[in-house]
Amino acid sequence: MKKSILGILILILIADISFAQNSAAEQEIITLSKNKWQWMSDKNVEALTKLFDEKSVFVHMGGSWGKDREIDIIKSGGIHYKKADIHEVSVKIIDNTAILLNRITLLAVIGSNEVTNPFIVTEVYIKKDGAWKMGSLSFTRLMTP
C-alpha cells in the first residue's frame, strides 16, 4: 500500500515538473512573439535577422518569400508593421517546434497606404542550439473584425 501511494506521488510530481517545463517554454515563445511584433514596428532588422532562420518563409496577402526579402521589406518601409493589437494567443509545442497562433488587428503602412486588417497569424519556431528561431510567419486575413 505504501509503495502504491509513493508511486502515485512520484507520478504526480513528474507530471507537475513536465507541465511546468512546457508552461515555461510556452511563455518563452509568447514573450518572443511579442518582442518580434515590437521589433517589426521599430524596424529593428538587427534583432529580426537574428530571430529569422536562414530558411524561414513568410506568407502575406500579397505573396510569399524568404528571410532576405522580408528583412529588406521591413528595412525599406515597404511594409511598416506599425501596431499589432493581440487579442488571443495559443502555443503548442511538439518536440523542438513551437506553433503560436495570434488573433490580431494589424495596423500597417503598405507603400503610402495605412491599412488595418484582422488576422490569424501562424508563427512557427524551431529550437536550434538552445535558441528559438522563426521558421515561418503566415498571415490569414479574417472576414470578420
Rank of each mutant, 00 (worst) to 15 (best):
V89Y: 05
K55V: 07
N44R: 01
K43H: 11
H80P: 07
S76T: 13
W37K: 05
A15D: 13
D16R: 15
A25Y: 07
I71G: 04
L48Q: 01
N35P: 02
F19C: 13
H60D: 06
F58S: 03
A47G: 03
D53S: 11
K67H: 15
I74K: 01
L51I: 05
D72H: 02
A20W: 08
S76Q: 09
T31F: 06
E70W: 01
T49M: 04
S23W: 13
Q27R: 09
G63H: 03
I74A: 00
I14T: 12
S64Q: 13
D42S: 13
S76G: 11
W37M: 05
N35K: 02
T49V: 12
S76W: 11
R69N: 15
Y81I: 03
W39C: 04
K83V: 15
D53C: 09
T49G: 11
A15H: 08
F19Q: 14
E70R: 05
K83H: 14
E54M: 01
V59I: 07
F58R: 01
K55Q: 13
K82Y: 12
A25W: 03
A47P: 02
S90M: 04
D42E: 15
A84S: 08
E26Q: 14
E70M: 08
D72T: 00
I86A: 08
H87S: 13
H60F: 10
E54W: 02
S90D: 09
